[in-house]
Nucleic acid binder design. Structure first.
Length: 579
DNA sequence: CTAGGGTTAG
């Protein structure tokens, strides 16, 4: 007779905490079949999305028998809404296993989850079940199916499903437009767009952002002006389009002329400033914002981290946790903060986040975070920890491999670095410019000149054009082996202007091999390219000393000293040398 | 219930 009493508690908008207590009680009483009601209430409760609810939902779903179909469907929709597409899909699979028949809502949610994950197999499987359950005539289900295929880029099948629909709504049309735009078929997208019976603001927005993504701002602007109705998304699409093609001032003009903005308008703008290194404007915008949230903090912290200002990044992270601010970080925050730690070589703080903070806050690990940690541990010498994390990756992508290759390189495991590189290319993951920087850095620590040449030359095969950084690594490798003339020739063969890094590498090599003639040439270029750095002068002075040219060394050191006191504009150190 | 915007790791 306990049962009716308990059920009266439900549907009364209990708080998450109260529901939690109720759940405990139910379990103690052995009334597990009521768990579904708890889930439903958790979902429909007025409380905002919070990590505790989501965490709690996961617990219920993983530890107990599945509830009824409607509750499971509600949970799936809840997960979809908050990005838990994998959970939603798992739930669907669980539903299937326990022999429960899904409703059209269930199937539509599951399809949405597949579309967002990009799970083609899952989508096709459910497509089959749509026929089995006789859901073919349902607009929502069929629209969701179109969504699966457009997101996969399979416009042929999408078109087929769309064609066979007995009834279409504006969402079905919009999905098709979006699909064509994403596959780069603007002509067909235009045709479909003009054929939509009742265009809504989404149809227009899809077109605008389709063009703005590719940087065709003329077309985007034309559509934007023609739109009968605009919303925040239309404006934000214009802002990000202008940022994409480097027109920060125009982006800002749009931003300023918005009557109301949201967080995304602001973080788009901050991201734009971040990309072009304008930390000051980014910070100004950030500080002027009145409604703070974790996205804004993430954007600003990322701006600092990306622009080599790890200290400021950590400071802002600290500010975010202060009780008067009290904004909860998420995975992205932590990934960025860990990257700042590894720039600073701060293993203590970084591993504290890994070992304690994540447990405290219930933030779970993902591959982005793992990769950031791999980089941190590897750069701080804990290569074993890095390896452990590397093996735990769900899927190893080019970024993870690059971090590991570089990590092996700086920890004296060059052979493993090469092995990892080959393993990566064999599994059809394409290396990029950063990967080669990592590999060449690894090789520069040992005298493997031929191996380095081989790898350097192989860049072409991947369609990669070496940057000055790659050349300077090669110069360093040749220089270490004492092949200075060869290094000099490589520099002369560069298709672009060598930078100070390249000449600096040669100068350093000359100083270890006491080569005056080439050293002077290298130093001359360094002075021209980076007149305010005194390090080059010291290197050349060392070369002079090593061959007994004490007078030259003395004169050079003196002028370095003077330069530290009085800055002479336009004066090259070579002028002093050639006196 | 379906569609549309931004941010994270080398």
């Amino acid at each position: 007779m306990l049962l009716p009493k308990i059920t009266t508690f439900f549907n009364r908008s209990l708080t998450a905490k109260q529901l939690k207590q109720l759940h405990g009680f139910i379990l103690v009483q052995g009334l597990n079949h009521l768990e579904g009601l708890i889930i439903r209430d958790l979902i429909t409760s007025q409380s905002d999305y919070s990590q505790s609810i989501s965490h709690y939902l996961r617990l219920i779903l993983h530890h107990s028998a599945l509830p009824d179909v409607d509750s499971a469907t509600s949970a799936m929709r809840y997960f979809c809404k908050h990005g838990g597409y994998h959970e939603a899909f798992d739930l669907y699979v669980g539903l299937q296993r326990s022999g429960l028949s899904p409703s059209t809502f269930t199937v539509a949610s599951a399809l949405k989850a597949c579309a967002r994950i990009g799970d083609g197999n899952g989508g096709i499987m459910i497509h089959g079940q749509v026929y089995k359950y006789g859901f073919c005539g349902d607009v929502y289900v069929e629209t969701a199916l179109v969504g699966v295929y457009t997101k996969l880029g399979d416009m042929e099948t999408a078109h087929k499903v769309f064609d066979e629909m007995s009834e279409r709504n504006v969402v079905s049309w919009n999905s098709m437009i979006d699909g064509y735009l994403r596959s780069g078929d603007f002509a067909t997208a235009e045709v479909v767009f003009s054929g939509v019976p009742n265009k809504d603001v989404v149809s227009w927005n899809s077109m605008v952002s389709g063009y703005s993504r590719t940087g065709d701002m003329e077309k985007a602007l034309k559509l934007f002006d023609e739109m009968p109705e605009r919303n925040l998304i239309s404006w934000n699409a214009m802002i990000s389009g202008y940022i994409e093609c480097g027109k920060l001032d125009l982006a800002r003009k749009f931003y300023d002329s918005m009557l109301q903005r949201n967080t995304i308008s602001c973080i788009t703008m901050i991201g734009g400033y971040s990309k072009c290194g304008d930390i000051v404007s980014a910070r100004k915008l950030f500080s002027e914002t009145d409604r703070m949230d974790h996205l804004l903090y993430n954007a600003m912290i990322a701006c600092y981290a990306k622009n080599s200002r790890p200290k400021e990044a950590l400071q802002l992270f600290d500010e975010m946790l202060q009780t008067n601010v009290n904004i909860q970080p998420n995975k992205m925050t932590l990934a960025t903060v860990i990257s700042a730690c590894s720039q600073l070589g701060d293993l203590t703080f970084g591993s504290w986040i890994h070992e304690h903070y994540m447990n405290q806050t219930g933030i779970t690990m993902d591959d982005h975070l793992r990769t950031a940690l791999i980089d941190l541990y590897a750069k701080c010498g804990s290569i074993d920890k890095a390896f452990k994390l590397f093996h735990n990756l769900q899927n190893k992508d080019v970024v993870a491999y690059t971090a590991m290759i570089l990590g092996c390189g700086i920890n004296g495991k060059q052979q493993i670095a090469i092995k990892l590189f080959d393993e990566m290319t064999e599994s059809k993951i394409r290396p990029n410019l950063v990967t080669f920087s990592g590999l060449l850095t690894a090789l520069s620590h040992v005298g493997m000149v031929e191996e380095s040449y081989h790898r350097f030359n192989s860049m072409k095969r991947y369609g990669l054009v070496p940057t000055p950084n790659h050349f300077s690594l090669m110069v360093e490798i040749l220089g270490r082996a004492g092949r200075l003339e060869e290094a000099h020739n490589l520099i002369k063969s560069m298709p672009m202007e060598p930078d100070a890094g390249v000449w600096g590498a040669l100068l350093l090599a000359c100083s270890t091999h006491n080569d005056v003639e080439l050293g002077e040439i290298a130093a001359k270029h360094c002075f021209e390219l980076e007149a305010d750095s005194s390090g080059y002068g010291s290197l050349l002075a060392n070369i002079y000393s090593s061959v007994g040219r004490w007078e030259d060394a003395k004169r050079l050191r003196k002028s370095i000293h003077e330069k530290g006191l009085v800055k002479v504009p336009g004066s090259s150190w070579m002028d002093h040398l050639q006196e």
